[in-house]
Design a protein around this nucleic acid. Structure first.
Lengths: 142, 142
DNA sequence: AATATAAACGCAACAAATTTGCGTTTACTA
DNA sequence: TAGTAAACGCAAATTTGTTGCGTTTATATT
């Protein structure tokens, strides 16, 4: 039985071809993917936008994925590899290609109550800039 | 001459009543404001939504404001008080009332090249959770 | 293996926020 | 004071996320 099927079964979700494929795509990716990126990777006929949306909602609800917002008004989804639903590393977002990279090597301070009475439930750090590939292309363009 | 007028003149922008008022509102606020929050503070007749939008775009372009995205898919704008266009403190966002608070007292590590070749232009840390006021209201509701 | 049923699906449509087009008004310069 | 580019208002398009609803399908049970 594939890893993807395992994940779905353990979460109590049905193993439809579509959901298995979405999980597999997330398994293969080392960085969080937007709905559009996921849809683009789906085989041939693909799935309806809404179906992908609802699948991801379902995954969120049972806690097998988390989602991050990195300053460009797009949700991106990743499997909860860390065990916790909190992601404790910063994300780098390229302003040119829009791709997100997990900076798992970088340590961050975490906050639970940065100011008296302010209870933190979610913490996110993103760095926007330009990735090596896009930087190189710009150099060539000159 | 008012501070707001000064800012506009120095930036090479025209001092229309609308833009002066937007700058004044931003000057009076200690936290970043969304377009809706700005529009709500405008006197009587106010300005068209699009006019506010284009004014903020213009301010961004000349670098007198910066904008932050704090996980709720809304841009919020603040004057570049720090001198640099980078804001180096985290923002707290209440998931109930949606208001943003600058945690200027909290120090963060800043990154310029977290990974070889990845050049950072913008850094943002936000903490989502519940603010003291909303937490209290929820207690009362029980 | 057949069947019942709740989960998953596709299509249409809605919603919120941002963005663009375009013709008119207005602040500023000469 | 006149000319001009900047700023404005209105309408409409775009983008992303979300809901409603009737149909299909995976799965548990017989």
């Amino acid at each position: 039985m594939s890893h993807a099927v395992n994940i779905l079964k353990k979460a109590g979700l049905r193993c439809t071809p579509g959901r298995v494929e979405i999980i597999s795509i997330l398994l293969d990716s080392e960085h969080p993917l937007s709905q559009e990126e996921i849809t683009a990777e789906l085989s041939k006929n693909g799935l309806d936008r809404v179906t992908v949306y609802r699948a991801l909602e379902a995954f969120l609800k049972v806690g097998i994925v988390h989602r991050v917002e990195t300053g460009d008004r797009l949700w991106r989804y990743a499997l909860c590899a860390c065990g916790s639903r909190k992601h404790c590393h910063p994300h780098f977002v390229c302003r040119e290609c829009g791709r997100v990279e997990c900076l798992t090597g970088v340590k961050l301070p975490t906050f639970t109550e940065p100011k008296p009475g302010y209870k933190v439930e979610e913490q996110e750090t993103y760095l926007r800039g330009i990735c090596p590939e896009c930087a190189e292309q710009q150099m060539e363009g000159i």
